[in-house]
Simulated scan of single mutants.
Amino acid sequence: MTSLAVGSASTAFAAQSTYVNERFGTVCTFPDDVFTDRQPEPENGDGQVWLSADSASLTCSGIFNVDDDTPKGFIAGERASNEPGYEVTYSKAGKDWAVLSGVKDGKIFYERRLFGRDGVIRTVWIDYPPALKSKYDPLVGVIGGGLKGP
């Protein structure tokens, strides 16, 4: 079961929603006037997806870190990927987080992962058409920076 609570206005966006995933404790805050179309929750309860009217998507999820992955290891693996249509153009890692950006299947993507001490990796993924770069680039850092866990 998941919950969705509407928060107060912030300086980052006029109206925001805060999603809390009950299975993993992943918390994402995002502009609810942009990501308006909430998709059905997956059966495993690992997260939630929202779509925008202009073909962007936002995913907030969690997974168990069964491979004991690290931020630097995650980035190295993604940079080495040979997946067609996937290219990482930016990456940065900290002690317990990693950020990637690039292109996947013709869309710009931004991904932030938090590597929790509780053995859970919490993720926010945003993708959008390149023509909307000026609209979404300012949002991704704010949304990614709002990713939290317990």
Rank of each mutant, 00 (worst) to 15 (best):
R79E: 14
E22D: 15
V88S: 07
G7L: 01
M1K: 11
S17F: 04
I126Y: 06
A12G: 00
A53T: 11
D46W: 14
Y86H: 15
R23Q: 15
G106L: 07
G7N: 03
G106H: 11
D69S: 15
Y90W: 04
S134N: 12
P130C: 05
D46M: 13
L58W: 07
S57M: 12
T26W: 09
D46F: 13
R79S: 05
P130N: 04
Y110G: 07
T11P: 01
T36M: 09
L114E: 04
M1G: 10
S52V: 02
W50E: 01
K148Q: 14
S61P: 00
G7Y: 00
Y128G: 02
T26Q: 12
P150D: 13
W125K: 03
L58D: 06
I108K: 14
R117P: 03
G145E: 00
F115S: 07
N44E: 14
D46P: 00
A93N: 05
D137L: 12
P138R: 01
G94F: 04
F74K: 03
N44I: 03
S57K: 09
G116I: 04
E22V: 05
I75T: 12
L114S: 01
S81G: 10
K133F: 11
V27E: 10
L147R: 06
C28T: 02
V142Y: 04
E78W: 09
V66T: 15
V34E: 14
R122G: 09
N82L: 12
A56L: 10
I63E: 15
V34K: 13
K148H: 06
F64Q: 13
I75G: 03
V6D: 06
D69I: 00
D96K: 12
G106Y: 10
S55V: 01
N44T: 08
Y86L: 12
D33R: 09
R112L: 05
T18A: 08
G102W: 12
G25A: 09
V20E: 12
G106N: 10
V20R: 14
T123E: 15
N65P: 07
G149S: 11
I126E: 03
A131C: 00
V49D: 10
P40K: 05
Y136S: 08
E83T: 15
S8N: 13
V6W: 03
A76P: 02
A12D: 13
A93Q: 10
T123A: 12
C28W: 06
A56K: 10
